[in-house]
Simulated scan of single mutants.
Amino acid sequence: DKGFFEDAGVDVKIEYFTAAKDRDAALTAGELDGVLCDEVAISIYQNSDIDMQIISVTDGFWILVASKDSGIQSMADLEGKKVGLSENTMIEYLVDDMVTSSGLAVEDIEKVAIPSMPTRLEMLRNNQIDAALLPAPFNDVAIADGGLEIIKVDNTEANIAVLGMLKEAITNKSAEVKAYVEAYNKAVEYINSTDISEYEDIIIKTVGYSEDMRGNITLPTYRKAELPPVEAVNKVMDWAKNKGLLTKDISGTDVLHEVE
């Protein structure tokens, strides 16, 4: 809406999806050049011979929210509880990491696969699950409804989300991809240096916040386009391989591409 892409001379069409399976269906149909996804998705793409490259991390945070009637006050209370997530994604990776880091075993919780974010939120609100890992605006809504924040994870601790671009697009549309990154960096500068009230309308409309969240929306400090550490990517790839999601050996060096 601020014209950063237009100023950079690149025509960008943004498609919105509420579930990874819908995004992946559009990608498979050849409707997308790039995706905002996660490293687990990148590994699965690569394993399926879709050469998706990471061109940057993106910033944000996820919150593990417990329902107000669950009795959960800390990670230790998750034992025997139902946790809503989407399987075979970074969300499940993060839940596994949270659980094992707290001293529990992954088997100590009951994972409930709920790919759709709106459905996951509704099931949490209706006490059909005890906790859920949610992004904005769903985590804000859940907490506003009385849910309890158990733990927050941002991109300083894990690469929650990345910007992936097909190698074919990087090769055949190199000028456009470079212009996209330049526009992204200018947008980062604008957001970090401008009071949120100047663009809050755009956030509410685009992300889907309710109007009563106006004035209470919190954003991270965004970084300009940069690649994640190879070691962090390797950790996720190893997790995916151990879960049986991959039949190939894929490393961070296979999926990282610096746009120059």
Rank of each mutant, 00 (worst) to 15 (best):
Y45F: 13
D140F: 12
G30Q: 04
T100Q: 08
S43A: 15
E226R: 12
T221D: 14
K81G: 04
I202T: 15
I250H: 00
E107P: 05
L163M: 13
K224R: 14
L36E: 06
D69Q: 10
E200S: 10
L78H: 01
A232R: 07
I109A: 04
T194F: 07
A158K: 11
E79A: 15
A232T: 10
E182K: 14
G208R: 11
N216G: 10
K68R: 11
V230S: 05
I114N: 02
A240S: 06
I196E: 04
E31V: 13
D24K: 13
G244D: 03
V255H: 00
D38H: 02
D1V: 06
D201L: 12
Y93E: 01
Y199G: 07
P228W: 03
L219T: 12
S193V: 09
G71L: 06
E31P: 06
K173T: 02
S56K: 02
I114Y: 01
E39P: 11
L78M: 10
G147K: 07
E189H: 10
K21L: 09
S74T: 11
Q53V: 01
D195W: 01
K152T: 03
V112P: 04
C37E: 10
E260G: 10
T18Q: 13
I44M: 10
A142D: 06
V141N: 05
N234I: 04
N242G: 10
V57W: 04
L32W: 09
A26P: 09
G71I: 03
A132T: 07
V207P: 00
S251L: 06
E260L: 14
A240H: 01
V57Q: 14
Y209W: 05
E182R: 08
F61K: 05
V207D: 02
Y190R: 04
N216R: 11
A105K: 15
T221F: 02
A183M: 02
H257Q: 13
K68P: 01
I143W: 00
Q53N: 06
E110N: 07
I14N: 14
P115W: 10
E15L: 14
V141G: 00
A232C: 00
N155A: 11
R120L: 06
K173D: 07
A161V: 11
C37R: 00
I50L: 12
D51T: 08
N47V: 11
L64V: 02
A158F: 08
E31T: 14
G30M: 07
A29G: 08
N126K: 15
I44L: 09
D69K: 09
I160M: 10
M52L: 14
G215F: 08
